[in-house]
């Protein structure tokens, strides 16, 4: 731990802080508008191209969506200005805990441990089964 090493590390930390501040200030993230029924379906179809999609439920805030495909729940949700996709057995949706107008759902994955799915006005959880994916 020489003074030069400490100085170099400190300078790096300052540089990181300034660059992140600049990146945030610039507001040049990709546009990520709230999902609606069509955009959610298109996104899920792109992420799960070999699945036949049944009904799609969009979260109240448009930041997540779930599609039913046979007995699978195909889930997408926004992280930053990108999206993350995972699937769960449909029956696992019942494990979600609803509180404050949103459902916290464990995804059982080290890389994406949980999702917060905000419920639309009067929205039920889990989503009604309806018809299965074709």
């Amino acid at each position: 731990m020489t003074p030069a090493f400490l100085l170099q590390t400190l300078a790096s930390l300052v540089a990181i802080f300034l660059l992140v501040a600049l990146a945030a200030w610039a507001r040049i993230a990709r546009p990520a508008p709230a999902l609606d029924a069509d955009t959610a379906r298109a996104l899920i179809a792109e992420e799960f191209p070999d699945h036949a999609l049944g009904p799609v439920w969009v979260a109240g805030d448009g930041a997540a969506a779930i599609a039913r495909s046979q007995d699978e729940a195909l889930i997408v949700y926004r992280a930053g200005d990108g999206y993350v996709a995972r699937s769960l057995p449909w029956s696992k949706l019942a494990d979600g805990r609803a509180s404050g107008g949103a459902v916290a759902l464990k995804l059982g994955d080290v890389t994406a441990p949980r999702i917060r799915f905000s419920l639309a006005e009067g929205g039920a959880w889990p989503p009604p089964m309806g018809e299965a994916g074709r």
Partner: peptide, 16 residues
């Protein structure tokens, strides 16, 4: 060029 603040923070911190 697209930047997102938290993404940039993770990338640069991983670099250091």
């Amino acid at each position: 060029a697209h930047y997102e603040g938290r993404d940039t923070l993770v990338s640069l911190s991983l670099g250091l």
